[in-house]
Nucleic acid binder design. Structure first.
Lengths: 212, 212
DNA sequence: CGGGTATGTATACTCCGTATAGTGGCCCGG
DNA sequence: CCGGGCCACTATACGGAGTATACATACCCG
């Protein structure tokens, strides 16, 4: 429901019409999550249906049926406040395609897991470079966009760390019979002990300490 | 499309019927991503429509219309191999509700961003503790489930780091006018300089090095 | 025998994501 | 001046994901 509440938050600043909402949404996240215009209208329809926004019929221009402007209602404000007050639940995390892929690859025969890990690692590192490059040449941008970019960076770094972790686990748990069927697993593609560029395994020992 | 390919991978091991697929899918990820039975059937229908699986009509039992068994086809194998060979693209990352929420909170007036961050941090740390507890009392479980669990841990840790990073940024960029409208921001809830439990800011300086 | 539970299949509905249709204003060249 | 292309803007269609629920059979148990 990110879109619903995102639009609601934008409408709390000032009333807007559909197309404008799309622009503001993308601007807030620096174009990280392009928003299809169609979703704006369907979401606005649902918001109006639920009484969270109200369409102040065509603007004061004499031309009807053009530029319906939407404004947030009391009900919408309450819903939005609730969203901000409630933390995002991790009890049912969104499906992680990479995690599913690796889990399936491990349990399947004839799949070169090491190659999958390597390919993903390369792709993620490339994205990481793109992110840092974007970040370096961004002086006068919005703070929110910078933080969203940092979020992408932190997540990509975690992904690389996890891939290294998986690789290390795999060579420790199943070095005897490396995928009997299928094409001969090119073991040269995967360094077999702690890789030179790997990060210290600070995770998996719970290095994040609580504070209060 | 994680479900589609997940089911395909399971069917590559052996032919199965719908309900069985659900059980295997959940078992592969240790129940992390519960799969609704309905999705299995709709996905199987689409897979059959696209020629990736073939339904070997009711099993050899004499009772028709019960227990349709599905088997992967050549076309399905090719599609699956393609999935394993192509890394998950980060060019259009999935929408991160937390990142959107914080970006919106920053640009909105009258929202106590520090409180949002603190609430989320607490919730994420609690999830992290649940994960590590699960991990500690798991001796004889599948390797894939262990790695999925590690993925959750790595992601949650990255989230906590990012939240600390955001907090630090916020107090550096806008300490002068702390949310003029709205309820008085309780600044006591947020430690204002480097928090005692915070991790070293190894990210944002790109500590993940390339190798190979 | 009757009911509760597990197994198993199927359908309905909402939301997300993307593509595309369709309209009116604006510029710009013949 | 006018006709075509482009842009801003609204709207609808369609497939996939996610959830709930209907429906049937089988098995256990009092």
């Amino acid at each position: 429901m990110s879109i619903r509440y995102g639009l609601l938050a934008l409408l709390q600043r000032q009333p807007m019409y559909g197309y404008q909402l799309r622009g503001e949404f993308e601007a807030s996240t620096g174009g990280t999550w392009p928003l299809n215009v169609g979703q704006v209208y369907t979401t606005l329809f649902r918001l109006e249906r639920d009484g969270a926004v109200a369409a102040t019929g065509h603007v004061e221009s004499d031309d009807p049926e053009l530029q319906k402007t939407y404004a947030i209602t009391e009900r919408g404000c309450a819903e939005l406040a609730d969203w901000f007050a409630t933390p995002v639940s991790r009890s049912r995390p969104p499906r992680d395609e990479l995690a599913i892929k690796l889990a399936m690859a491990i349990a399947s025969h004839g799949v070169d897991v090491a190659a999958v890990i390597q390919g993903q690692r390369t792709a993620t590192l490339r994205s990481l470079q793109d992110y840092t490059r974007l970040k370096s040449r961004s002086d006068e941008v919005e703070l929110s966009w910078l933080l969203v970019l940092d979020s992408l960076i932190f997540n990509a770094e975690a992904e690389v760390r996890w891939l290294d972790h998986c690789e290390a686990r795999l060579v420790r748990f199943a070095p005897q019979g490396a995928s009997p069927p299928g094409p001969p697993a090119q073991k040269g593609a995967a360094p077999l002990d702690s890789p030179p560029g790997a990060l210290p395994p600070e995770s998996a020992t719970s290095s994040v300490r609580s504070r209060s």
